[in-house]
Simulated scan of single mutants.
Amino acid sequence: MHADPFALRALLGASAAPSRRAISGESGVTLPPLIDHHVHLHLIDERALPGGGIAGVVDLGGDPVGLARRPVDGMPRVSYAGAFLTAPGGYPSGRPWAPDEIVRIATDPSDHPGVPGGAATAVGEQASFGASVIKVALNAAAGPVFDPAMLDAIVSAARGHGLPVVAHVEGERMTRLALDAGVDALAHTPFTEALDDDLIGRAAAAGQTWISTLGIHQGDRAATANALANLEAFVAAGGTVLYGTDLGNGDRRVGVLVDELRALDRAGVRGEALVRALCDPWPAAAAAGVSTFVPGPPPAALDDVAEWLGRATVVPSEELIHDDH
């Protein structure tokens, strides 16, 4: 018996469709391609991502030259920031997992391309290698960070290339610094401080997007509590949330992470909203020619959606027959 398409869409949204695979006849549900909006490809075995349900990723800190040389139509489909832009001595400089190729030091707010250490130079390099977003490091817990003038210059340079800016915020007042500069997205739900309602309301009203990465805090009770409370308030204020795991940070499954989905669910990103957080193509176009297929019966209730999504795999769209009648 096929799933009721009306009940399915009421639970998961208009993009969900009962379907079956043409070759095997296996029944299930089709969704748009699932995307992990925060990974580091140089730290994971990306070949496992499609089998684990992930069709696209956003690399938020890698070698821009290597990323630019990737096959455009490979799997997973990759959008990327290129290198981290950071202050002298700032995060992630010197970390064992962060080779020099993935870090650029910016020291001058100059808007003239070619100025050594200039904001326009650093941003322009990433744009020239095909970046879809610019990544800045604002980690006051681990070293120096950009002052407001320097951060403003980077955001302005990115705007000149039509690119959004995403920030790693960590440490006191870093979320406020990013918001005041007009940073478009946060690479992590803020976790080092409990944000006040005014700041969270400002972020939501400004259209800032937060990438979840709640699962990286396992074992750190304070960070977990802060992140969940901040995300719950941001969702309640109407903020936009994207699924992201920071894959490469710790030894975890390469694919859809059910624990991340459960945490999002607890923060109020449920059902259709959870599917949107996974399928939003930000910051680039959606993967073409592939779909998500979740075999077997669909979820019966909201509480079942996170676990159910953990069964997802990536298949060619032409292989699926939709059973919408």
Rank of each mutant, 00 (worst) to 15 (best):
P164A: 14
C279D: 07
G248V: 09
M75N: 07
P144L: 04
I35Y: 12
N249G: 11
G61T: 08
A237I: 05
P88K: 04
A285Q: 14
P316R: 11
A106W: 05
T240Y: 13
E232L: 06
D45L: 03
Q208A: 15
R252N: 07
D280R: 09
E26H: 01
A285K: 04
D73T: 11
A181D: 07
I35G: 01
S24Q: 06
S128D: 12
N139P: 01
L138F: 09
G52R: 01
V315W: 04
L214Y: 03
E172V: 09
T107M: 13
D45Y: 03
A233P: 00
G248K: 06
G25I: 01
Y243R: 02
V256C: 14
V314F: 07
T189P: 06
F293W: 14
G239F: 10
P5L: 09
V305H: 13
A22Q: 10
R266F: 08
T30Q: 13
W308R: 01
G238F: 03
A285Y: 04
L31W: 02
V58E: 09
A140T: 11
G61K: 05
S19C: 15
A286D: 11
I216Y: 08
T86G: 06
A225K: 05
D280T: 15
V290M: 08
V315Y: 02
Q126Y: 12
G90L: 05
E319Q: 14
P281H: 09
D108I: 09
D304N: 03
P190V: 08
E172F: 10
Y80L: 01
R176T: 11
G268Y: 12
F84L: 13
R69P: 00
L186H: 12
G89F: 08
D180N: 13
E46P: 00
A306G: 10
A17N: 02
E26K: 00
A284C: 11
D108L: 12
A284E: 07
G289Q: 11
R202L: 12
D251N: 08
G62E: 14
I23Q: 10
V133G: 00
N226L: 02
C279R: 01
L43K: 01
L320Q: 06
T107E: 13
P5T: 08
R202K: 11
L231W: 07
T224F: 02
E26F: 07
R9E: 11
P33T: 08
T189R: 02
S110H: 05
G238I: 03
D246W: 06
H168T: 00
I102V: 15
A127F: 12
V294M: 05
L179G: 01
G89N: 06
A119F: 12
L34H: 03
P92G: 10
S291T: 09
P32Y: 04
M1L: 08
H42W: 14
R221P: 00
I200D: 02
F191E: 00
A149Y: 08
N230Y: 06
V183S: 02
I200Y: 08
T86Q: 03
A22W: 10
G171P: 02
P92E: 03
D147A: 11
F6N: 13
I54F: 06
A83C: 12
I134D: 07
W97F: 10
P299Y: 05
G201I: 05
A17F: 04
A157Q: 04
F6W: 09
A229C: 11
S156E: 14
P5I: 11
L264W: 08
L320F: 03
D45N: 15
V314N: 03
A83T: 00
A236W: 04
R202Y: 10
